[in-house]
Amino acid sequence: MTLLRRGAAPPGDKEATSLPRPGNDAVTERERRQIFWTRMDLRVTPYLFIAPFFILFAIFGLFPLLYTVWVSLHDWTLLGGNQGFNWFAHYTRLVQDAKFWNSLYNTFGIFVVAVVPQLLLAMYLADTLSRRIRAVNFFRMGLLLPYLTSIAAVAIVFSQLFGTQFGLINYVLGFFGIDPINWQAGRFSSWVAIAVMIDWRWTGYNALIYLAAMSAIPREIYEAAAIDGASRMRQFWQITIPMLRPTIIFTVIVSTIGQMQLFTEPVIFGDVAGGTQGQFQTTMMLIFEEAFRFNNYGYGSAIAWTLFMIIVVLSALNALLTSKIKGA
């Protein structure tokens, strides 16, 4: 601590050039520290607050993601560990692997069979519930109920419903003279069974999103249209649908990403092999089978990364589409 004495030469540091402050030096020091911390607070604290997510994401998201690339370039088994670098051998094998293409075909097939009816039905439900009907809150809550159940529970119950000899669905079909269907045996029949499980759980979720978007459309537009003599159908197609476009694209993107990673429902419906000939083995199931059943981590990682890239491309396509529509 330096004391300023009359007649003494002024200290050569910056402190002395600033205006004299009231109070002693200890206070100035404290104030400087205070300013420092306030600045730090303003600049650093926001990052600290969001840090937990990013640190966890880096450890449990980003690191595995990048490490998977590393593993996919090696011969790597669960038992033997890393058995050497092999460049892109796994990726060249992948291109020629019929099982991989089959799994991709199944993933997209189930996507189409599940998502198209799902979004149409969700739209229909949302439109119905946006009208004035009795107990509307009850029905709106009801939409979300399937979403609350666990996927595994849904899949177990539906797998029993779709049983060949003792399933309820075949029993009911029997009344209409339809022979029992072995749902797991056929490609299309297994897709339908899985699509029903997915739709049961997700239709209400999407309907609620549509419903929220619909309630944001100004009433005046409908009133004006009604005065001009537009029918309800016409109002729906020419007002509701165009106004919902961003929301529809959002649901399509989210469903695409979700469906590309389809796993739980088909696994519980059959097992990771996806039926006797892989009729409903999705790409995620193939990854799991290669990595955790055959213990071939290298190849499993290569498939995982390819799937990741496919999802990125699809998302980019969706984003491009969105900006085009917005710009138009």
């Binding site: 306030t38 600290l48 840090a51 966890l56």
Partner: peptide, 20 residues
């Protein structure tokens, strides 16, 4: 205010550590 903010940063950091 200084102390309170200081405490907040500490709490946030502790939160991270606890989560980890």
């Amino acid at each position: 205010t200084f102390h309170r903010r200081y405490w907040k940063t500490t709490a946030a950091m502790l939160g991270v550590v606890a989560l980890l």
